[in-house]
């Protein structure tokens, strides 16, 4: 953040930054955001949320780390190739609709069932979640790919 703003020519802002606080806080907040993102993602079928929001929030959690640390440190923390993430997302989003043929139903007909699990009570299993994972991964991967690429560019 500091270097970013400084290079943009905003020196006044940079003096007010304190990296130690930011870095410590962002480590904690990162997990909060990620958990919130997963919560939104999995609950999306019944309450507000879903793959798009989940993916974007996941991306913004990583962005927070990118601001607090630099790109190389974040890459060490999470050695993920974002292009691979996009590919995986597209595979999920593309394959799940065709799975409906296995059930003998038209393209894109999702399957669902309810399973009785002890302690957790009734659970619903739904292939729409698999499709949403595709959305989640693609959105998150594309966002992070764009951001890291721009960050890599020399000023």
């Amino acid at each position: 953040m500091k270097s970013t703003l400084m290079r943009a020519g905003y020196k006044k802002v940079s003096r007010q930054m304190n990296d130690v606080f930011l870095q410590f806080a962002s480590k904690v907040i990162f997990f909060l955001i990620v958990m919130f993102a997963f919560n939104l993602f999995f609950a999306g079928h019944y309450t507000p949320g879903g793959g798009f929001v989940g993916g974007l929030l996941g991306a913004s959690a990583v962005v927070l780390l990118l601001i607090a640390f630099d790109r190389k440190t974040v890459h060490k923390m999470m050695p993920i190739d974002y292009r691979f993430m996009i590919t995986l997302g597209l595979v999920f989003a593309g394959v799940v609709p065709t799975l409906s043929f296995l059930f003998g139903t038209p393209f894109f007909q999702h399957q669902f069932t309810y399973v009785e699990v002890p302690i957790l009570q009734e659970l619903s299993l739904h292939t729409a979640v698999l499709f949403d994972i595709g959305v989640f991964l693609t959105v998150m991967g594309a966002c992070l790919l764009i951001i890291t690429l721009v960050a890599e560019e020399k000023a």
């Binding site: 999306g44 079928h45 019944y46 309450t47 507000p48 949320g49 879903g50 793959g51 798009f52 997302g89 597209l90 989003a93 593309g94 609709p97 894109f108 999702h110 669902f112 619903s124 739904h126 729409a128 499709f131 949403d132 595709g134 959305v135 693609t138 959105v139």
Partner: peptide
Amino acid sequence: AAGGNMVNVILVDFRGFDTLFET
């Protein structure tokens, strides 16, 4: 669609084809 959130159900189920191409 066995869902509760209509917006998300429209996105991933009723009009899932649109969403596929959006991704």
